[in-house]
Design a protein around this nucleic acid. Structure first.
Lengths: 233, 233
DNA sequence: ATCCGCCAGCTTGGCAACAAGATAGATTTA
DNA sequence: TAAATCTATCTTGTTGCCAAGCTGGCGGAT
């Protein structure tokens, strides 16, 4: 197993160093196997892992090629300006797309964070963040009907949640302590974010509260593709 | 390929839900293959990926077993108190170990950040952070001899770098803007951190400066095992 | 009764042969 | 001549078989 890992390490280094350019063909499995005096299956497994990691893609009958990597966009995590403002500041072609709106079944941690009880209706609103045509983050908000009585009607049209909050009479916001962790995408997230299964996602969880009253407006969960960003904090 | 990913997803979910307990034996490759009506090779590949991800381990002739996962320790990232202070605050059995001290060859970004010139000697000091006997972070500092004239003599004995700075006459520190990204461990990092190759590491890069004079004391690079922590910011 | 060795049957690991897809060039055909 | 087809050869993908390792039970020797 270690042989595979070492080969993966070496190939990643070579790709990053630019020995192989994007869309350039890599050595065939047999060539590499002969070169390193290792079984082809080891090279195969290494190539498969590089595919999962999003570094290369392979085509039967053709060969394996270097995937062109996303640029690393520096992103300011702190401060409570909205995502679109952040991106516009940096001068990126940015758009947002509502991908999902639905009522959720009871989830204790979310209901607890929102400070609502079991009978309350809670809705999930997911927006996909797209930069230069490339989906780079999935922003999911959980909001209660008891705070936003018309959420079930308005929900499907929301693309900027901060804007919606303002139309509902909330002017200034504070965010609770944010929690950061690393997760891998599940099936649907892979499809939506168009990434392979070993792209780590940076998960940022926080609460958004009304500055004046302290009302919890939403539980916010943002999953950023870690291959697209570096974060400044 | 998609079949493998779906199976990996499902098995991870089942492990997290506790369907399979730590050190419990998983179904054999053939059993799962029969159950899901898929080739054994698909199950094999799924199991191999779960090994790389640190969820299971396999023994030839025995079977595959659930790896007991590390607990998720909440860690406060912000503030400029030292790592050991942070951990003591949380009441963890914490120790630190000097794993490496050596002069580095020229690296433009580090030299630039330290604001030193090509002739300067720069040393790398790496400390391994261990909680409850489990290595969870690798803290690497780069410091110049022009700032710490006796660094080449003192270096090997340093375990707390903040303490060393204080002995050198620096009292208060500020940290520059921190940059956060996600990387995978290389060969030596895998060995030191005792983790498999698909454990994402949270890389936190920052500068440490003397509050009074603004002198850049070090470039700091901390690699945290993402399976051991959640981060509060 | 107890111990030891053998063997059958399970497990994961590895490999070689084959399948399938693509391509380039030679060859055939209109 | 030009287009179509065949073929040799390269590529990645798949499969099935056997090796290697472990376990438990059976049976014979002590």
């Amino acid at each position: 197993m270690s042989e595979k890992m070492l080969l993966v390490d070496e190939l990643i280094t070579q790709i990053k160093e630019g020995k192989y350019k994007p869309n350039e063909k890599l050595p065939s499995e047999n060539e590499l196997a002969d070169q390193y005096r290792i079984p082809r299956m080891v090279v195969r497994k290494a190539y498969e892992q590089l595919q999962d990691l999003g570094f290369i893609f392979s085509k039967q009958g053709r060969g394996s090629y270097v995937q062109n990597r996303k640029q690393q966009i520096p992103l300011i995590l702190t401060g409570n300006i909205s995502f679109s403002e952040k991106m516009n500041e940096l001068g990126f072609d940015f758009r947002s797309q509502n991908v999902c709106f639905e009522k959720i079944t009871y989830e204790s941690d979310i209901y607890h964070s929102l400070k609502v009880n079991l009978q309350d209706e809670v809705y999930r609103i997911s927006r996909l963040r797209i930069v230069d045509g490339c989906p780079i983050a999935l922003h999911t908000s959980y909001a209660a009907k008891s705070v936003f009585p018309q959420i079930d009607r308005d929900g499907p049209g929301i693309t900027s949640i901060f804007h919606y909050y303002k139309t509902q009479g909330y002017k200034e916001f504070t965010s609770g302590q944010s929690q950061l962790s690393v997760v891998f995408p599940n099936e649907s997230e892979r499809k939506i974010l168009q990434c392979s299964n070993l792209i780590p996602l940076l998960l940022l969880e926080s609460l958004c509260m009304d500055k004046e009253t302290g009302t919890v407006l939403e539980v916010s969960r943002i999953k950023y593709r870690s291959d697209c960003f570096t974060y400044l904090i």
